[in-house]
């Protein structure tokens, strides 16, 4: 290409509104929907994460408390007898939202090596908090894709095996505690950043960003701490119960008729 044509190329055609309208058909609405869905699915998962931590940490109160929570979801109190399949149902919904969220988020991942490198270099030189956080979000998200899938698959196929002994055995005797440990960090960090991101993405809060950042850190710290104590409790229980692994938990003074 000669430099003359290069110069000529800079001359744009007249831009009439009619020409633009004719050239571009009405844009479809899916980008908007997908963007909202990405945020909503993330919000749902983050809220679920908070609730989930609430449920599993009841082990810190007592075995009975956790047992009661686990059975609650089988809905015996409503339907007369427990339906573990209901738990599978909940898990299936969470899994579906999770897959959706992952798919939506994947669209934002670097699409090729060039993009990956460009971002990595950018993050490296910019020393910018929110940019580095996204990198963390990306990697924790990537990890969650595997960790969560394993966990959810277990819950989906063995919904009845949720209980103080059953869960503790899975953690310790089933050798899943390293997975849960990694999952804990990944999920709480990812969730904390995600909630922060939601706020700056949709909200009008340039002025209160510093406060928001502290809230994010407090969120992650609190839930990681709670998660660690909870996991320790399961490990402790799992070790004590290792020789009787597989034994189902029955509450001490159960009045439940089996």
């Amino acid at each position: 290409m000669s430099s003359l044509t290069e110069i000529r190329d800079e001359t744009p055609p007249p831009l009439t509104d009619a020409a633009v309208r004719a050239a571009a058909p009405r844009r479809n609405r899916w980008p908007a929907r997908l963007d909202v869905l990405q945020s909503l699915s993330g919000l749902f998962l983050a809220l679920f994460l908070i609730a989930h931590m609430g449920f599993v940490s009841t082990i810190l109160i007592s075995h009975e408390a956790f047992y009661a929570v686990a059975r609650f979801f089988e809905a015996a109190w409503l339907l007369g007898k427990p339906y573990p399949a209901l738990v599978s149902g909940v898990v299936a919904v969470v899994l579906a939202v999770f897959v959706l969220h992952a798919w939506l988020a994947l669209r934002k991942f670097p699409g090729n090596l060039r993009a990956y490198r460009a971002f990595a270099e950018h993050r490296e030189r910019l020393h910018h908090g929110d940019t580095s956080l996204w990198w963390l979000q990306l990697w924790t998200g990537f990890a969650l894709f595997f960790l969560t899938t394993v966990h959810l698959y277990g819950m989906l196929t063995q919904p009845a095996l949720i209980g103080p002994f059953e869960s503790a055995d899975r953690v310790w005797t089933g050798n899943l505690w390293p997975l849960y440990l990694a999952l804990l960090f990944a999920a709480e960090i990812h969730g904390g950043i995600g909630l922060y991101r939601l706020a700056v993405k949709w909200g009008d809060l340039a002025a209160s960003r510093a406060r928001l950042r502290r809230a994010r850190q407090a969120f992650s710290a609190f839930f990681i701490a709670l998660g660690l104590v909870t996991l320790a409790a399961y490990i402790d229980l799992g070790r004590a119960h290792a020789d009787r692994a597989g034994e189902r938990y029955t509450p001490p003074a159960t009045t439940e008729a089996r």
């Binding site: 844009r27 609405r29 980008p31 908007a32 997908l34 963007d35 669209r107 934002k108 910019l126 910018h128 929110d130 940019t131 956080l133 996204w134 991101r197 700056v200 993405k201 340039a206 960003r209």
Partner: peptide, 16 residues
């Protein structure tokens, strides 16, 4: 209204 426009923004706020 697409991922090269407002929906592409990931709110990293480097710009801001």
């Amino acid at each position: 209204g697409d991922d090269d426009g407002v929906f592409g923004c990931m709110s990293l706020l480097g710009c801001h």
